[in-house]
């Protein structure tokens, strides 16, 4: 017996499986039990509606404009915000990478991420309100005559998504751009390339794959916007986002099966966009992945 067992143990150990590898088990089991299992459970539950056939929840969702419209209303917020945040992050990161006191700026920018969407929404309610500092300043410098309405509508949510989203995309972009070997750009500069063409031909191609990943992370985040859409937006109207519809189904109608179905639709849209972006990245970019440090 022991003669049989010894070689087998050795091969397992050769493949890297021994007592130390087993330390992985609690964490892996935990994630399987509390992340993978609920997801599968939710998926199955979504096919067991309170009424109707197995597709009942989905046909209910897609036959009610008030429900399926939430996909469009959420996309209308998430897509422009994500694109804007990335478009702003790249030039800012290009400038900031040479800055000496980078740490102060990055610390200030990490504030809105840390404080979270609830606090940002509460702050913006005052700040963007008709008597808030922003409107007062705009009137003072004569840009507008009357306060413009920036809360309880689309723009309130949009601004809150820029405030929490821009620092996120910026910090990711900055870590990517500062990972590029400065010798590459110096070489190009020696050969007479101006800043613009150095960016166009050296930096941009190196960060495009990373930007695609950044886009995915930021988009998925913006698409699941919840507290700020309720607090700063018009949750019954133009910012009735999909996560709000799902939460309503769960906590106001206590229909967990329908709520799970909405969560699954949300996940499909998110993964759909991520898949699309990553496929496009694969088509356009051939070469070693990663302009970043990693």
């Amino acid at each position: 017996m022991s003669a049989d067992r010894r070689p087998r143990r050795r091969t397992l150990a050769d493949r890297g499986i021994d007592g130390v590898t087993l330390l992985l088990l609690p964490a892996a089991l935990f994630v399987v039990l509390l992340f993978v299992y609920p997801f599968v459970y939710g998926l199955l539950l979504s096919f067991a509606p309170k009424e109707g056939g197995w597709l009942g929840n989905y046909s209910k969702f897609f036959s009610d404009p008030y429900m399926y419209g939430t996909i469009w209303l959420t996309l209308r917020l998430a897509l422009p915000v994500t694109l804007l945040n990335i478009a702003l992050s790249v030039p800012v990161a290009m400038q900031v990478r040479h800055m000496k006191r980078q740490r102060l700026l990055t610390t200030i920018l990490v504030l809105p991420i840390t404080l979270g969407t609830v606090l940002v929404a509460e702050g913006l309610l005052n700040y963007l309100g008709p008597q808030g500092w922003l409107n007062r300043t705009l009137i003072l410098i004569g840009l507008i005559d009357h306060p413009i309405r920036l809360v309880h509508n689309y723009w309130g949510v949009f601004i809150s998504l820029v405030i929490t989203g821009f620092p996120f995309t910026f910090l990711l972009t900055l870590s990517m751009i500062s990972g590029i070997d400065p010798a590459l750009e110096q070489a190009a500069a020696t050969l007479g390339a101006r800043a613009r063409s150095r960016f166009r031909h050296i930096v941009l191609p190196l960060i495009v794959p990373g930007l695609a990943v950044t886009f995915c992370l930021a988009f998925v985040d913006a698409f699941s916007v919840f507290p700020s859409a309720v607090m700063l937006g018009a949750p019954a109207g133009e910012t009735r986002v999909i996560s709000f519809a799902a939460a309503q189904a769960a906590f106001e109608q206590y229909d967990y099966s329908y709520a799970s179905a909405i969560a699954m639709i949300m996940a499909v849209v998110q993964f759909g966009f991520v898949g699309l972006v990553l496929t496009a990245r694969g088509l356009f970019y051939k070469g070693p992945v990663g302009g970043g440090k990693g």
Binding site: L24, V31, P38, F39, G42, L217, V220, A246, Q270
Partner: peptide
Amino acid sequence: VIVLFLLPLLVPPITFGIPLATVLY
């Protein structure tokens, strides 16, 4: 295994939170 650990960080909390809350209820 690494993908398994990355997924809960990449999927937004509200998306997996609803099925998770259902199981916890």
